[in-house]
Design a protein around this nucleic acid. Structure first.
Lengths: 232, 232
DNA sequence: ACAAAAGTGTTGAGAGTACACCCATGC
DNA sequence: GCATGGGTGTACTCTCAACACTTTTGT
């Protein structure tokens, strides 16, 4: 019986396992995700999130990092496991279970927006997503929801910004992801009291108006801070 | 090339996929998890969390529900995907990727504490866990942490209680899972103001002292309530 | 001097926390 | 009548949210 403990199923009974990565970045006033255009069936010509099969000699995190590097050229960026999608019919070829990840990369780390990889890639705003292959629309929606949620309670938002940034840039980033305007004085007080950023000592030189102080994210600060709980 | 989009790997390149379920219940003053004693190698004779291979014709949720029913006899209980563990050496036989779930069952739903299934099962308190097979200690720790976290911000805690309960029972459940004493008046006010439970109209008849009002969880209430956010 | 963006405090409302006594029932 | 657990209110503190003007720079 295949459900008995200790039994190893033969290879032909095994599902295929892939990783898919929702890659977020923030530039030109919008939160965007990187999509690739599929060259082969099924869904040839349709957009999909980057992904591929997990090799037997790499961990899931390694597979996700490999896909990320292949599509964007970046390494050492924030990424996190999102959810595993395994419904029976999600891939018409065969049973495929996919472990979805999401990654945050600062726009300053993106080398060439047109993909240097052979496949066509493009950054899409969330309000202008094309139709997606497989169940990737569901995966992207879930990742977007999770990003907004995480941003409210943790400090991962800084992973979308360059190493040095102004408080106005930071506030804009929050406003874009949370999709609501924020009060400047309250925002600044709250961020500064949280003690997660520090001044670099430098100021912006370009741009109009009064130069702004530059800040950096304090990596020694706790990224996940406790908020007030609901229950009980 | 195996990382090319559209390529389907041959069966012998595929990892095996299992589901493992951390099953929580609350009785005799402690939060407990159900473990099964392994009969076959590897780790024969050691305790492990219930799990098994995912069939090709069932979804991940179905596989988790099947395992849960096999070990406890219960169906229709709260369960949720936890995390997918896929490190290379986690199973010495072959590459095995496991999708971990956690489930909450009320003690009133447990039929016979000694497993009716052929395998030996036992409920263990968290401060008296035996050594576990594979990376199951890590999975159990992660599930425990996630349960405490979820309990503070959502109403899933009610899934550990019978359909009707008193406020004192509810407070005890929270105190056990959160591992801290709570103020009776503040607890009651907070729970009642949240508007997630309602009186059944009945009272307890057995037990010493003044009879207590019975409450039930309002299934029409929103289970995930918004708490005050940290940023910004 | 003026346009453009940076920077800065106070007040009122709501929520959280700490804390002690009376009530209903069984024996 | 007493032991046992159920049930109830208030005062203080702290955090959040709303809100407008001054400062620094480039042109």
């Amino acid at each position: 019986m295949s459900n008995e403990i200790g039994y190893t199923p033969q290879a032909e009974e095994r599902p295929a396992v892939t990783v898919d990565v929702v890659i977020f970045s923030l530039f030109e006033g919008a939160l965007r995700a990187l999509l690739v255009k599929r060259k082969s069936p099924p869904f040839a010509g349709q957009w999909a999130i980057p992904g591929g099969f997990v090799h037997l000699n790499e961990s899931l995190e390694d597979a996700a990092a490999r896909k990320l590097a292949e599509e964007t050229g970046v390494t050492d960026v924030y990424s996190e496991q999102l959810f595993t999608f395994g419904d029976i019919g999600r891939d018409p070829r065969t049973r495929v279970i996919t472990v979805a990840y999401f990654a945050l990369i600062p726009y300053t780390a993106i080398e060439h927006h047109p993909g240097k990889h052979e496949s066509a890639t493009e950054w899409f705003k969330f309000d202008a997503m094309p139709e997606l292959a497989f169940d990737h629309a569901e995966i992207v929606d879930y990742a977007h929801q999770r990003l907004r949620y995480k941003l409210e309670y943790t400090a991962v938002g800084f992973q979308l910004l360059p190493d040095e940034f102004t408080l106005t840039q930071l506030q804009r980033a929050y406003e874009i992801v949370l999709n609501e305007p924020l009060d400047k004085r309250n925002f600044r007080r709250k961020i500064l009291v949280a003690d997660i950023i520090e001044e670099t000592g430098a100021k912006t030189s370009e741009g109009e108006g009064r130069p702004a102080k530059l800040y950096r994210y304090r990596t020694d600060s706790v990224t996940e801070v406790k908020t007030r709980r609901l229950f009980p």
